[in-house]
Nucleic acid binder design. Structure first.
Ligand SMILES: [Mn+2]
Ligand SMILES: [Mn+2]
Ligand SMILES: [Zn+2]
Ligand SMILES: [Zn+2]
Lengths: 178, 178
DNA sequence: TCTGAGATTGAGACTGATTCTCAATATCAT
DNA sequence: ATGATATTGAGAATCAGTCTCAATCTCAGA
């Protein structure tokens, strides 16, 4: 919301199309209109969005894009590093912008679906120690803490761990840095 | 492998059926033969196994059990606390025995599918700090580190992070405590 | 041991996200 | 502008998991 972040966001967004085009070129792929539409739609989002929700939306676009193309292009955007893919359970993949952002992990509210991001260098460091001790080379990791957010607690929402499950919809982002 | 662990394992296994029966009673459910067969099959395993693999196996049993019953009973075993459910990606649920075991997280080799368990109290503690700071009540969490195990590295197996994916089969367990 | 209310089973239909197929179409280096 | 390739979209296919429901068990009580 402040000037610095906004500026970086804009800068990143301006660079994204060029980065994607470069990625496509390097693979002998073409920059088509559907791909452009999907890229723009993805760049418009600051939240964690699912492939099928985006597909539904773009199907009704002035420039309709098919479900197949949305799935294919999101995969490309992920490979290019522009997007990051997450599995919050529930059998659907979610995406979020990755270009110009730093690694973070997630708190997932099983009451309302709200997602809160956090960064914790100490946790990251301990993970390195664990992998090193095991002779394991880490490529990526996923740390998700499921529970109830402050708002849901105030609202009295809760359930027993054994029965708990993700809400159908992921709701939004609450940033946070440790 | 040592006497103490073996003893605890046996003891735990002996208690499991009673615990499950108690759980069923408390819910007005009946202990049927299929449920017994599935319980026994689950207790026989020390690894991380998928529901569909177990269903395939039990379909060919001397006392055949249907896919539906396997899925239904694994869910019950999870709710009863005898099993824990994991999502290692790849769209399949995996289970492992939970009774008498302590919480641990997983290293997943994307070269060979081998799973290594680890425990790290410091990471757990930092997680508590994160959730507390957010006014979040943690119900459960999942920390998975994907990468290449020592064996795969020696074998020269590797791939770029963007293309990496889980092997179809989860291979086994390598225990470890930090 | 017998009985019946109520729970469970199994076969197979169904679901829903994602992937695949392939003929028609768009892209872009030349 | 042309043509070798890559891409698209509609719909079929996949696949783990869930649901349906008539036939079949369980087990507390008689
Ligand atoms: Mn995020
Ligand atoms: Mn485990
Ligand atoms: Zn919430
Ligand atoms: Zn390996």
């Amino acid at each position: 919301m402040n000037g610095k972040d906004g500026g970086e966001r804009e800068m990143t967004r301006a660079q994204a199309p060029a980065a994607f085009e470069k990625f496509l070129r390097g693979r002998g792929l073409k920059l088509t209109r559907p791909r452009w539409v999907i890229l723009e739609a993805a760049l418009d989002r600051r939240d964690h969005f699912s492939a099928d929700e985006l597909a539904d939306r773009l199907r009704k676009n002035p420039r309709p894009v098919s479900k197949a193309s949305v799935y294919r292009t999101l995969a490309l955007l992920k490979e290019s590093g522009l997007l990051e893919e997450h599995d919050f359970g529930g059998g659907r993949k979610f995406y979020e912008q990755a270009l110009g952002r730093t690694h973070h992990d997630h708190l997932v509210c099983i009451g309302c679906g709200q997602i809160t991001e956090f960064q914790n260098p100490r946790i990251e460091h301990m993970q390195d120690q664990v992998t090193e001790r095991e002779g394991f080379v880490s490529v990526f990791h996923s740390l998700k803490i499921f529970g109830y957010c402050r708002a849901c607690r105030k609202r009295g929402v809760s359930a027993d761990p054994q029965t708990a499950h993700l809400p159908r919809e992921i709701v939004g982002i609450h940033g946070s840095t440790t």
